[in-house]
Amino acid sequence: NITNLCPFDEVFNATRFASVYAWNRKRISNCVADYSVLYNFAPFFAFKCYGVSPTKLNDLCFTNVYADSFVIRGNEVSQIAPGQTGNIADYNYKLPDDFTGCVIAWNSNKLDSKVGGNYNYLYRLFRKSNLKPFERDISTEIYQAGNKPCNGVAGFNCYFPLRSYGFRPTYGVGHQPYRVVVLSFELLHAPATVCGPKKST
């Protein structure tokens, strides 16, 4: 009989979020998941679920829940969905086509923008091939755009693969920082350890 609540607040209220190319993952297990707390949290810009209804989450049990978190621009949030393409979905964070879970995003301009620009948040701009679902690539190898080998030196046709967002408070909404948490639900042939409040007695 599990009684402790799942530590969703640790994920959602973290002081610093990860850059999207180096997205953070927390495994959540052996706890009671009260999703209504999240669902009623006012400032969400997006709360979209795939393969599961957000209002039914509290009735369900899962083997594991993974909480992935990172920061992207407002106009990139739409790429955090199954079957998407674009710089983020291709080179930074890719969801599987059969994704079961929820994508939760909110504007973090007050936290993550600075006058003069916040350059701490990076994304991958160049990559030889697209990421596989949930693949994480933190390499900083110089990207070779031409035929000539770069030998690890940036220059003509040789690019550092990461780019900084440089968030400023005055940017338009599409270019403002958004914090994103992706909850993915794993249902294995194993005992369920993460259940909603109704199922955990």
Rank of each mutant, 00 (worst) to 15 (best):
2 I>S: 14
2 I>A: 14
4 N>T: 15
4 N>K: 14
5 L>I: 13
6 C>W: 05
7 P>H: 10
7 P>V: 10
7 P>A: 12
7 P>K: 13
9 D>V: 13
11 V>L: 08
12 F>I: 08
13 N>T: 08
13 N>A: 08
14 A>G: 08
14 A>D: 07
15 T>H: 10
15 T>L: 08
15 T>C: 05
16 R>I: 11
16 R>V: 13
17 F>D: 02
17 F>Y: 08
17 F>E: 02
18 A>C: 08
19 S>H: 06
19 S>N: 09
20 V>M: 01
20 V>R: 02
20 V>K: 01
21 Y>V: 10
22 A>T: 08
22 A>M: 10
22 A>L: 07
23 W>K: 01
24 N>C: 08
24 N>I: 07
25 R>A: 02
26 K>M: 12
26 K>R: 15
26 K>V: 14
28 I>T: 04
28 I>L: 14
30 N>L: 06
30 N>G: 10
31 C>Q: 07
32 V>E: 09
33 A>C: 10
33 A>R: 08
34 D>M: 06
35 Y>L: 14
35 Y>T: 09
35 Y>I: 13
37 V>Y: 15
39 Y>H: 14
40 N>D: 13
40 N>M: 09
41 F>Y: 15
41 F>E: 09
42 A>F: 11
42 A>E: 11
43 P>T: 08
43 P>L: 06
43 P>F: 08
44 F>K: 14
44 F>T: 11
45 F>T: 15
48 K>H: 09
49 C>I: 02
49 C>L: 02
51 G>Q: 09
51 G>M: 05
52 V>S: 05
52 V>C: 10
54 P>G: 09
55 T>D: 15
55 T>E: 15
55 T>P: 09
55 T>F: 10
56 K>C: 07
57 L>R: 06
57 L>S: 06
58 N>T: 10
59 D>F: 08
60 L>E: 09
60 L>R: 11
60 L>C: 08
60 L>K: 13
60 L>I: 11
63 T>A: 13
63 T>S: 13
63 T>G: 11
63 T>K: 14
64 N>L: 08
64 N>Y: 13
66 Y>W: 12
66 Y>D: 07
67 A>Q: 04
70 F>A: 02
70 F>T: 00
70 F>G: 01
71 V>T: 07
72 I>T: 05
73 R>N: 13
74 G>P: 01
76 E>W: 03
77 V>N: 03
79 Q>T: 04
81 A>H: 05
81 A>V: 07
81 A>C: 05
82 P>A: 03
82 P>H: 02
83 G>R: 11
83 G>H: 11
83 G>I: 05
84 Q>V: 11
84 Q>I: 08
85 T>I: 08
85 T>A: 10
86 G>C: 01
86 G>Y: 02
86 G>E: 00
87 N>W: 15
89 A>S: 00
89 A>Q: 03
89 A>H: 05
91 Y>H: 09
92 N>S: 04
93 Y>R: 02
93 Y>P: 00
96 P>V: 04
96 P>Y: 03
96 P>L: 03
96 P>F: 02
97 D>S: 13
97 D>A: 13
97 D>E: 12
97 D>Q: 13
98 D>N: 15
98 D>Y: 09
99 F>C: 00
100 T>F: 14
100 T>C: 12
101 G>P: 00
101 G>I: 02
101 G>V: 03
102 C>T: 02
103 V>C: 01
104 I>H: 05
104 I>W: 13
105 A>P: 02
106 W>Q: 06
107 N>T: 05
107 N>Q: 06
107 N>A: 07
107 N>Y: 02
108 S>T: 12
109 N>K: 09
109 N>S: 05
109 N>R: 09
110 K>Y: 08
110 K>I: 07
111 L>T: 04
111 L>F: 11
112 D>Q: 02
112 D>K: 02
112 D>S: 03
114 K>Q: 13
114 K>H: 11
115 V>R: 11
115 V>P: 12
115 V>F: 10
115 V>K: 12
116 G>Y: 06
116 G>Q: 12
119 Y>D: 08
120 N>V: 10
120 N>E: 14
120 N>Y: 10
120 N>P: 05
121 Y>N: 08
122 L>H: 06
123 Y>D: 04
124 R>L: 00
126 F>D: 00
127 R>D: 00
127 R>P: 00
128 K>L: 09
128 K>T: 12
131 L>N: 04
131 L>V: 10
132 K>Q: 13
132 K>E: 12
132 K>I: 10
133 P>K: 05
134 F>N: 09
134 F>T: 08
135 E>C: 06
136 R>N: 05
138 I>V: 15
138 I>F: 08
138 I>C: 11
139 S>K: 11
140 T>N: 13
141 E>L: 08
142 I>V: 12
142 I>W: 05
143 Y>S: 02
143 Y>I: 04
144 Q>I: 07
145 A>K: 05
146 G>K: 02
147 N>R: 06
148 K>T: 13
149 P>D: 14
149 P>A: 13
150 C>L: 00
151 N>E: 13
151 N>H: 13
152 G>D: 12
153 V>F: 12
153 V>C: 09
154 A>P: 11
154 A>E: 15
154 A>C: 07
154 A>S: 15
155 G>K: 08
155 G>V: 03
156 F>W: 06
158 C>W: 03
158 C>D: 00
160 F>W: 11
160 F>N: 14
161 P>H: 03
163 R>V: 15
164 S>L: 04
164 S>A: 12
165 Y>V: 03
165 Y>W: 03
166 G>W: 04
166 G>S: 11
168 R>V: 01
169 P>I: 04
169 P>Y: 05
170 T>R: 04
171 Y>W: 05
171 Y>V: 02
172 G>C: 01
172 G>A: 00
174 G>L: 11
175 H>Y: 15
176 Q>K: 04
176 Q>Y: 02
178 Y>F: 15
178 Y>H: 13
178 Y>C: 11
178 Y>Q: 06
179 R>C: 00
180 V>E: 00
180 V>Q: 01
182 V>L: 01
182 V>I: 09
182 V>G: 01
183 L>D: 00
185 F>K: 04
185 F>L: 08
188 L>P: 11
190 A>K: 14
190 A>G: 15
191 P>W: 09
191 P>I: 07
191 P>K: 13
191 P>Y: 10
192 A>H: 14
192 A>N: 13
192 A>V: 13
193 T>A: 12
194 V>Y: 11
194 V>H: 12
195 C>Y: 11
195 C>Q: 12
196 G>D: 12
196 G>N: 12
197 P>I: 15
197 P>Q: 15
197 P>E: 14
198 K>W: 12
199 K>R: 14
200 S>D: 14
200 S>H: 14
201 T>S: 15
